[in-house]
Structures are given as C-alpha cells and as structure tokens.
Design a protein around this nucleic acid. Structure first.
Lengths: 250, 250
DNA sequence: TAGTGGTCTAGACCACCGG
DNA sequence: CGGTGGTCTAGACCACTAG
C-alpha cells in the first residue's frame, strides 16, 4: 500500500487549491459530495479535510460549507527540523561547513534544553550554512553525549546532519520544540554571516527529540536578515508553522 | 450540553500532564484503557488524544504507546491573534494608545495583505502597547474599508480592538495568517519603543479574516527585543504556535 | 426547512513495536 | 507473539447556517 486513502483525497484537494481550480474564498465540495466522488466513508473524507484544515488551507465552521483560506504550501514536519530538506524542497542549493567540533561541559541553556545536568559533557558544533552560495545561517548546536560519536564521525561538509544520523546511526528526530525571536548579531555572527555587528538576526532555538522522547540536540540557529521568514496560519483548532524566503511562499 | 465528550477526556489528560501525574517521557494510557475508563468508543478517545498531539503535549507512533513530550501550556487561537487576551492569560497589565488614525490609499504591501487593489482606501492605525507599563509593541494596521467606521468609533485607549469589534460591530476574526521575521528598528520604532535605532525587533505581520474569509485587517507588529518569543512544537502531523515572555512559558 | 459540518458508536483489518 | 496505534466502514443524532 503506497498511501492512505485520506492522504490521496487530501493531496488531490490540495493540488486543486494550489492550482487555482478551487479559488481562495471559494467553497470546498461538501463531505457528502466527496464521499460519492471517492466512494469513501465519511470518516475518511473528514480525515482528509481535517488535514487541510490543520495546514491552514481550509477553514471550517459547523453548519457552513468549508472555504478555501489560502493557496500557500506549508511545511512538513521534516522540513521544519531540517534546513537541508526545506531548501531542497525549494530547489535551492545548500552547502554546509562545520567550523568547530569539541566536547565540553554543558552551559546552563544547553543543559536545560537537553534536559541534562549543567556541566555534564556535550558535543558542541559550530556550523555555517549557505543557500545558493550565500552564507545564510549560523548553527551552534549541543549534541547529547550518546549521540556525540555519530556526529564526530561525519565529514566537515556534511549537508544534513540529521539525515546522516538517521542513515548511519539510526538516530531519528521525531519531535521538536522551537523558540523564535530576534537578536543583534555579535562579533562572530557578523563575521561569519557577512553582516554588520548589531544587525538584526532571526533566531530559532530548538530541541530535537527521538522516538522515545530523548533529547538529541539543542541548537541556536541564526538567520541573516531578510533571508528567511517563518509563516503560520491559525484557525479555531490548528496552527502549523512554516518558513519563507524573501517573498516566495514555501 | 456544556462540552463535547472528547474535550472532557482531553482536558482530564491535559491536567494530568500539567500536574505531573503523567510525567514527561512517560507513557499515556492505551486507547483501550481510555475506552473502558470513560465508556467511550475508540473514535472519541482518538479524537481526544489527537487534540493533545496537535498541542505538542503528546507524541504518537504506530505500534508503540503514546508518550508525554512536554508539560507546557500552549496558546488558544484567540491568544495568537490578540495581544490583549494573551497578556491577560499571563496576568500582565496591558495598556494601549492609538497615536494616529487616518484614511488613506493602500500601499502595495497593505493591498496585497488585504487582498484589495493598490490605492483603494483603507484605515491606517498606529498604536503602541504597553506591558506592565513598559512600551512593548508597536502596531501599524490597515483596516479594510468596510471595517473602518467601527474602528473609528473606538476610544483611543481601547485595550483590545478585536474584542471591541466583536462586541460592538459583530466583526469576528476566525482565521489568521502570520509572517515572522526580524527587522532593525527605524527612527519611529526606536522613538516609540524606547530603544536605539537599529536594534533588532521581532516582527509579526498578519492578516485576520472573518468567518467568510474576508480580510478584516493587515498588520505589521514589532516587539521590543527580549520582550516576546514565539514558540512552537512539532511532530509528524501538527505544529501549533505560541509565544513566550522572557523565560516564562505561556 | 434543507443542507452541512460536529460528534459519537461498534465494528473491522492492517502495520508496526516490543518483549 | 500480543498489544498498540493507523486506517476504514456504515450507520446515527444533533447544532448550526443559509436561503
């Protein structure tokens, strides 16, 4: 079985919205129409439209037909956690370079993020990432000790650490927690990103957890001004998060 | 009928998580256990845990028991769209002051955000908002022409414009679309927020839509550095968005 | 008032995880 | 292997919206 029935229905509707056949502000087919159209039960149809609702494409109110809210594609989970996968989905070339890799005691913020005692050993990694050749993001990551050997084995130019860890070491990120704010570029930030000291940077701090809820990494990622925008939509129930480059929706 | 069955189940589990009875990293009761415990069908139980999953409290994988990921409360929809409601939930005092209210032609960004032709008339509002007396956020909002009279009728010190519009004019925001990035403070920003020119500001641009998908307002909100952080969690399916102040989770 | 979505039930088969 | 969650069906009643 390739894909589930409800995913098939959702994907077809999504394409109709993205393609403009279902215009923004217009109405979605009713559940009963979709049931006969696809020969599916109501539960399956509702699962499909619930997915689109959670993506912010569709709005829903009891008693009224669902309406199309937006025609912008949103991110999958993998894309939010992985810069490489996100950029790949946009057709942009990503290069990365690890500048520093060292074991050291966890500072207070790293310790809290990883859920380990302050001062316990972590693997610190400093990494710059380029988008189409432009330095775009600076990553300061603390890896949990149990994941450190796998990270130390990676090449300096490794494009996606998370993908490599999944492939080579069976370490898979399942959940993430993210904090987004703005900070001024420090001396190192300015130098490595090619901006002036004090420039506004968009900062995304996040922790990645594996299937069992164990913390894999805690990271402080800083984006060059204007390079990336996070986007999100919300309605009564759901609010997925996404990212943008310049004015292009992703 | 007060609340739906699945909301009751979800709320009980949520309280157990927030209260620490279901510790982070621990396992949730199985679906069948919840079915007998509540005398509910499987569908209803699944609806409850799906809600918790979408809130980032619970992680889910086929074949394995669900686990508790986090014990942080997240935002409701209303809180994401309304600064006043969000601050109120934290027990913070909000004051607001409208500095400028003028009809004028829509600029390119306002026109695109509202989905109206460039140059058509909108109501521009400039507003400062204080948290516990500190200037925290600067709002530059364009209201759609049909909503303008209701906004013009509001007092200068109106704490929550959206709440007032709902109460007095029946204009209710149902959906929102948000863009988050970082910008340098301009002259007016710096002056009104009490920061230095060029300071990094967290910017949230957003459009609010009513029940029918009509745009009510397009807004460019800028937060003083360090005052507010957006937070989000993600897993395979969902990624709700939230906000923080300093280090306090909200 | 007819149509629509929100909630709920009681079954079923399957894929996956863990011991 | 048994337990668990993922998917799907075929019904039902209700609350709300829209014309």
């Amino acid at each position: 079985m390739g894909t589930a029935r409800y995913l098939e229905i959702a994907e077809t509707l999504r394409q109709a919205i993205l393609g403009g056949e279902l215009p923004v502000g217009g109405r979605l087919p009713s559940e009963s129409a979709l049931m006969t159209r696809w020969g599916a039960s109501r539960g399956t149809v509702r699962q499909a439209v619930a997915l689109l609702t959670s993506e912010g494409l569709v709005g829903s109110r009891q008693g009224a037909r669902r309406i199309v809210l937006s025609r912008e594609r949103r991110h999958s989970f993998a894309e939010l956690n992985s810069f490489a996968q996100w950029a790949h989905g946009l057709g942009l070339a990503v290069t990365s370079r690890i500048l520093l890799r060292a074991r050291r005691p966890a500072g207070p913020e790293e310790a809290e993020g990883l859920g380990v005692p302050e001062g316990s050993e972590i693997l610190h990694v400093l990494r710059v990432r380029h988008l189409d050749g432009e330095p775009t993001m600076l990553e300061r990551t603390a890896y949990a000790q149990w994941a450190a050997p796998a990270v130390e084995a990676l090449p300096e130019e490794c494009v996606s650490i998370m993908d490599s860890l999944a492939r080579d070491a069976g370490i898979v990120a399942q959940y993430g927690e993210h904090l987004i704010d703005a900070v001024a570029a420090g001396g190192q930030d300015a130098h490595l990103l090619g901006v002036r000291r004090g420039s506004p940077l968009l900062r995304q701090r996040h922790v990645s957890l594996d299937q069992g809820g164990r913390a894999i990494e805690w990271s402080d990622d800083r984006y060059r001004p204007g390079s990336v925008t996070f986007s999100t939509s919300n309605s009564a129930a759901a609010a997925p998060l996404g990212r943008r480059i310049g004015d292009r929706a992703v």
